[in-house]
């Protein structure tokens, strides 16, 4: 496996854990890599310097992925990171090894659901603010770099 393929598989594994699918199978990661090789993920519009930087940051770990994804959903929702995450989710939900982990309910009642949603929305809001602090300077740097 070449270096790029290895990076993609590690990236897929990190993103899979972030999505709550646990450890992704080797075949799922190979499929994730295959989609990249077919050129369906990276498009010119979705792959600015900032998009690539965001993906690089997201590879650092699941918390970094969450922070980067929160920012991307608000400001780069059609960007490279979101495309990669959606692709991986589609791959995970269409194989029996991971389908239940991404598509089976985990709460038992409407009340528990409402409480947990409220908590998750608060976390989202906090991460959105943190993301602004972290990624806005990065965005400026990337824009400046592109201009040069």
């Amino acid at each position: 496996m070449n270096a790029e393929a290895s990076i993609l598989e590690r990236e897929g594994a990190t993103f899979g854990r972030y999505l709550g699918a646990g450890e992704s199978s080797h075949r799922a990661l190979a499929k994730y890599r295959e989609a990249h090789e077919l050129g369906v993920v990276v498009t010119s519009a979705a792959s600015t310097r900032f998009d690539r930087a965001l993906v690089g940051f997201a590879r650092l770990g699941t918390f970094a992925t969450r922070l980067a994804d929160t920012h991307a959903r608000l400001f780069r929702k059609g960007g490279l990171l979101r495309r990669k995450l959606v692709l991986l989710l589609a791959i995970l939900e269409t194989h029996a090894d991971t389908a239940d982990r991404v598509d089976a309910p985990t709460v038992g009642s409407p009340a528990v659901f409402v409480v947990e949603v409220a908590f998750r929305l608060i976390v989202f809001a906090v991460l959105a603010l943190v993301g602004l602090v972290v990624f806005l300077p990065l965005r400026v740097v990337c824009a400046f770099g592109s201009a040069r």
Binding site: Y18, L19, G20, R66, D69, T70, R73, R82, L85, V86, L89, V102, D103, A104, P105, T106, V107, F113, V117, R120, L121, V123, F124, L127
Partner: peptide, 16 residues
Amino acid sequence: PLDLATSLWITKNVHG
């Protein structure tokens, strides 16, 4: 309009 992990968590719990 949320990060994908949160959206996915909500989706799987409202699927039914």
